[in-house]
Design a protein around this nucleic acid. Structure first.
Length: 271
DNA sequence: TTAATCACCTGAGGGC
DNA sequence: TGCCCTCAGGTGATTA
């Protein structure tokens, strides 16, 4: 399930293969994703050169001179580079075929992802314009969280997972960062002091940096651009470890639901 | 305005 | 072995 580190890993992986390449053909096998894939992509994209591959939140932005492909991996999506034509597997929904024969293939079993096209600045797109800061940027710090959280009664875990507050903190990394910061996931966001928010912001950055270095998290069906799994799961300290000993105090980790999301924490270490 | 819930979708895993 | 059911989860839309 791609979270920000997985998307970043994907961006870094595919960029060297597609930047500067000219699109020869687009094959859409399944247009019904989260939103319908624009049916005219096969007419629009051929002969356009990929200028850059970047990321905003969990959206991949593949830029050309005529516009930008906005791509989201959803819950189960992946992109991989194929050096030459290969028969499509199940759930291989879209191929971007380049003049040099390379194929960028989009696979998404659950079809929660999206492939869209915009000719305007992607930053102004409806999906991107109201998003919060990037967690690894200097715009994101404890003061930012503290300011936005005043008078908020939502659980801190829901608060940090809100893309209007900060982007890219999904369920796995919210669990990990809150454990690292020693904050109870159900604590009201508005009742956390600035010093604890400064610690939490640092923990979010640390967890995400570490995951990116490891190449993302391997859960179920995440694979990177080469079809290899990430390795961060081996370093998860609480997520998926309910009932196992807390890495700090050795008491059993507890699993609860916070706004309908699986949440694992230590009742002894997190307050 | 805020918080919670729903909907989308399919594969994995457990129970029988 | 096979069928059925539940769960997992990102995020926009909807509801309270």
């Amino acid at each position: 399930m791609p979270e920000l580190p997985e998307v970043e890993t994907t961006v870094r992986g595919i960029a060297p293969h597609v930047e500067g390449q000219v699109i020869r053909q687009v094959v859409i096998r399944q247009p019904q994703l989260r939103w319908p894939v624009p049916v005219n992509l096969p007419e629009i994209l051929p002969n356009l050169t990929i200028r850059s591959v970047s990321r905003r939140a969990k959206y991949l932005l593949i830029s050309t001179d005529a516009g930008t492909i906005i791509l989201h991996l959803g819950m189960s999506g992946s992109l991989r580079i194929l050096p030459k034509e290969k028969p499509a597997d199940k759930h291989d929904h879209i191929d971007f075929i380049f003049n040099n024969g390379t194929i960028l293939r989009y696979n998404d079993p659950r079809r929660f992802g999206a492939v869209l096209w915009t000719t305007s600045s992607p930053a102004g797109h409806d999906l991107l314009k109201d998003l919060g800061p990037e967690p690894l940027s200097s715009d994101f710090d404890g003061m930012h969280l503290y300011r936005l959280s005043r008078n908020r009664k939502a659980p801190i875990k829901s608060f940090v997972m809100d893309g209007h507050v900060v982007v890219g903190v999904g369920n796995i990394y919210a669990n990990e960062a809150l454990f690292m910061a020693g904050i109870h996931p159900k604590r009201h966001a508005g009742r956390i002091a600035l010093a604890r928010y400064q610690l939490l912001a640092d923990c979010i950055k640390t967890v995400l940096h570490s995951a990116i270095e490891q190449g993302g998290t391997t859960l179920r069906n995440f694979v990177n651009e080469a079809g290899n799994p990430g390795y961060f799961k081996q370093q998860l300290r609480v997520y998926g470890r309910a009932g196992q000993p807390c890495p700090h105090c050795l008491r059993p980790l507890t699993e609860i639901r916070v706004t309908n999301r699986s949440t694992v924490f230590c009742v002894n270490c997190q307050h």
